[in-house]
Simulated scan of single mutants.
Amino acid sequence: MEQQQLQELLTKLHAELEHVETVDESTVAVLAQLREDIQKLVHEGDAHIKEPEPVSERLGEALKHFETDHPRLSLAIQHVLDSLARMGI
């Protein structure tokens, strides 16, 4: 059940990312990393991602980056983080 819910949340997050108008290089970089992370989670799952910085940490950083200017995107990121936490990821 959690895996299916995570898939739905990732799909919603991806849709929100598509609506963000990028305005600076920092935002472009954060968006690119989020898109890459979402693709990896959707296709491979977190267990297969072997990187120095966990996806949940990058999502947390993205949450801070977007919370002021993009509240809907921030909310979607928070839902994904909550789901990952419930799954122990």
Rank of each mutant, 00 (worst) to 15 (best):
L41D: 01
L75N: 11
H65G: 05
L13C: 04
F66N: 07
H19M: 11
E8L: 03
Q33L: 13
D46C: 07
S26G: 10
K40G: 07
E25K: 11
R58W: 05
H79E: 14
I38E: 03
Q4A: 10
H43P: 00
V30S: 05
H65N: 07
H65I: 08
E16W: 01
A76S: 14
V28S: 11
G45E: 05
E44M: 10
Q5F: 06
D24R: 07
T22N: 07
V42G: 00
H79F: 07
A29Q: 13
R35Y: 04
V42H: 00
M87W: 00
Q33G: 09
A62T: 04
A47M: 09
E18H: 09
T22I: 12
L63P: 07
A29W: 08
E8W: 01
Q7T: 07
V55Q: 05
H43Q: 12
H48D: 13
I77Y: 03
H19W: 08
I49V: 14
S74F: 06
E36A: 14
P54C: 03
H19N: 15
L10G: 00
D69E: 14
H65T: 12
T68K: 13
L63V: 05
T68E: 15
V55P: 03
E36D: 11
K40E: 12
D82W: 00
A47K: 13
S56C: 06
E36C: 06
H43R: 09
L84A: 01
V20G: 06
E53V: 15
V80R: 02
E61D: 15
M87N: 02
A85T: 06
V30K: 05
P54L: 02
R58H: 13
D37N: 15
K64A: 13
T11S: 15
K50M: 09
R72W: 06
V30A: 08
A32D: 10
A85L: 04
L13G: 02
L81S: 00
E18T: 06
E51G: 08
Q78I: 03
L31H: 06
E57I: 11
L59Y: 04
G88P: 01
E16D: 14
E18R: 09
K40A: 15
H14Q: 13
S26W: 08
L63T: 07
A62H: 03
P52M: 10
D82G: 02
L75R: 11
Q33K: 15
P71D: 07
A47R: 14
Q39D: 12
I49M: 11
Q39K: 08
L81H: 00
L31Q: 13
K50D: 14
H79W: 05
A76C: 06
E67K: 12
L41V: 04
R58T: 09
S56N: 08
E51T: 13
A47G: 04
L73Y: 12
L81K: 01
E21R: 09
S83C: 15
A32N: 08
L10I: 03
E21T: 14
V42Y: 00
A76R: 03
K40D: 10
L73F: 07
E51M: 11
H48W: 09
V20C: 10
L75W: 08
E61P: 04
L84I: 00
Q78P: 02
V28A: 15
D37Y: 01
K12V: 10
V23Y: 09
L81T: 00
A47I: 12
L10F: 01
D46F: 07
